[in-house]
Design a protein around this nucleic acid. Sequence first.
DNA 1: CCGAATCCGTAAAGATACTG
DNA 2: CAGTATCTTTACGGATTCGG
Lengths: 125, 125
Amino acid sequence: MKKESNGHCTKTQCMNKGGTDICLCPLDGVIHIIGKKWALLIISIVGNRKKLRFNEIKELLGDISPKTLTDRLKELETLGLIQREAFSEIPPRVEYSLTKDGIEVRDAMIPLMEWICKKEDQNNL
Amino acid sequence: MKKESNGHCTKTQCMNKGGTDICLCPLDGVIHIIGKKWALLIISIVGNRKKLRFNEIKELLGDISPKTLTDRLKELETLGLIQREAFSEIPPRVEYSLTKDGIEVRDAMIPLMEWICKKEDQNNL
DNA sequence: CCGAATCCGTAAAGATACTG
DNA sequence: CAGTATCTTTACGGATTCGG
């Protein structure tokens, strides 16, 4: 996971975990998509249910506008984290699910979500 | 980590990890701060270096505006993730570091950062 | 000088109504 | 049902200014 020689880590934005340097240089990449509002939650929720329709995601998130949800889903689809499957029916049906990469991201963010939940628990005592 | 009875999980926004439900209800809480632009990167970078000054963070992030950095630092300070220590010197000096909670968050996001780095590596082959 | 605060223009997000 | 279109509101970015 060292990347000293490929031109990305000249700013040495690395974290040290037990002596192993972990590069976090992707400043202009993935993190600015998944760091956007709602993105992490969408990945979580879609991952939970395996398959979800547009309005189901919307209901689960609670306060997101359809426009923002559309934007986020498109971005995540472009990133290759979410898969969109449309059925030519009436009424129309579109199902969203995580791709292989999306599942990896979801797994990777579980510790973060767990911490958040723990924190909320403390605050709600 | 079950929260079915406290009114938070009525929407059952839970993820299933090996049979254990993990609640991710904090829709209006922590995630909408740390999910903001730059927030995760700030936590990472400050965590890497233990102590950083305003302009050092700015340099490391590269393209952030001073205003946005100030905003984010204040939010993270309010959240209790980042500690601000100002010295009454000339020229002035302000040092930022992670709190105990901030360190926990940083540790929790390591898997996510690792995934991102792996992904960037693949794309840069 | 450093760490912001201010001002202002642009971009992203939200609310609501509406369409294929 | 699954989005668009449109409009308003909020967040972000860039330059400049300011207090210590």
